[in-house]
């Protein structure tokens, strides 16, 4: 058998698949864009945005006109009847504000800052929280689930499941409020909030990561446990055990290995979204990431920023979907890309 040829065929197939998927992503992104655009311009007229930005005291109608003109909101929304040729479409708020996004040019926020630059600088802190939370979480959840599987149908397992259910019945807000209160306020172990760049960031990151991990224990461990149990009920495991292999051996060598396929492919989709950070954690801990950026933008009704974040979110989600498909073929060559 020509191994090299096979590999080549697979690679070219993969590339063709990728191109198809990327092409498919474009209409989706256009749909997302149109949808949010429509939604936001029902909410906010450009006058509203101007008033929001101009503040409280002594705002004259002239100032509002001026602001709209400077920020490009004095054009028609979707169709410019006054313009000629392609200008009918391009000389509109919609075109001006969203065409650039497809080449990741997000333009300027309503308060005049470059959105692309802001996203670039805020991605770091977001990842500094989200990535450790994700990785440590995965290890902790899988170990916990394995432990429960090992002791399945005993009191220990029952207690573990009960603990999971209780943990997942607590609102995420309480984990944060409680964690800050205990660890930072009472015990003085880490700073309550804030962030620093580089090495200093560790002490700021510890608590949010811990809370993030604890907050996810309930649902994730329980889910992984069912996956393990599913796997353990399969014939090959019974056979292995019948051969007299030790429980631990079976669990690690066979069950864990096979169960990792659904687990990993299940989490791949969220990896790109880690960039977006967590809304709650970031704003409670004062971490200057994309999550708090989003919340600020919602509160300030900064249309440009929110739309940029929506676009980025959708883009990353689609990337996640593609990665998921690819990871399926990697772990299981039988899956064909279609």
């Amino acid at each position: 058998m020509d191994v090299a040829g096979d590999l080549e065929a697979r690679t070219s197939k993969m590339i063709a698949y990728l191109i198809r998927r990327i092409l498919y992503a474009i209409p989706i992104l256009i749909g997302v864009n149109l949808f949010t655009f429509a939604l936001f311009f029902v909410v906010n007229t450009p006058d509203d945005m101007a008033r929001m930005q101009l503040g409280i005291k002594r705002v004259t109608p002239d100032a509002i006109e001026n602001w709209k003109q400077q920020h490009g909101y004095d054009k028609p929304l979707m169709l410019n009847r006054a313009a000629s040729g392609t200008g009918k479409i391009t000389d509109t708020i919609f075109w001006q504000k969203s065409a650039g996004m497809f080449v990741l040019e997000f333009g300027f926020s309503d308060d005049g800052r470059s959105i692309s630059r802001e996203i670039a600088t805020r991605m770091g802190p977001s990842l500094a929280i989200a990535l450790p939370t994700f990785m440590i979480g995965l290890v902790v959840y899988v170990s916990f689930a394995l432990l429960m599987t090992l002791f399945r149908a005993t009191a220990l397992d029952m207690a573990g499941v009960a603990l999971c259910v209780v943990l997942m019945s607590i609102s995420g807000l309480f984990y944060i409020i409680g964690g800050q209160f205990l660890v930072s306020k009472l015990w003085h172990l880490v700073p309550i909030s804030g962030y620093a760049v580089g090495e200093d960031s560790i002490k700021f990151v510890l608590l949010p990561v811990l809370i993030g991990v604890v907050g996810g224990v309930g649902s994730s461990s329980r889910w992984y446990r069912t996956i393990f149990l599913d796997e353990i009920g399969k014939d090959y495991v019974r056979t292995a055990r019948a051969k007299g292999l030790s429980e631990l051996h079976v669990l690690f060598r066979h069950v864990l290995k096979n169960a990792m396929i659904p687990i990993l492919t299940g989490v791949v989709v969220v990896i790109p979204l880690l960039f977006l950070g967590s809304l709650l954690t970031e704003s409670f801990f004062g971490i200057p990431g994309l999550g708090s950026y989003t919340i600020d933008a919602i509160n300030a009704q900064d249309f440009s920023v929110v739309r940029a974040m929506v676009f980025l979110g959708s883009l990353l989600y689609i990337v996640g979907l593609i990665l998921t498909d690819i990871s399926y073929t990697m772990v299981d060559p039988r899956v064909r890309l279609s």
Binding site: V32, T36, L39, T294
Partner: peptide, 15 residues
């Protein structure tokens, strides 16, 4: 796909 690719908090906030 369009709906689910929009981060849900943002979608809810806008709506």
């Amino acid at each position: 796909t369009v709906l689910s690719s929009i981060p849900s908090v943002l979608l809810i906030a806008a709506a």
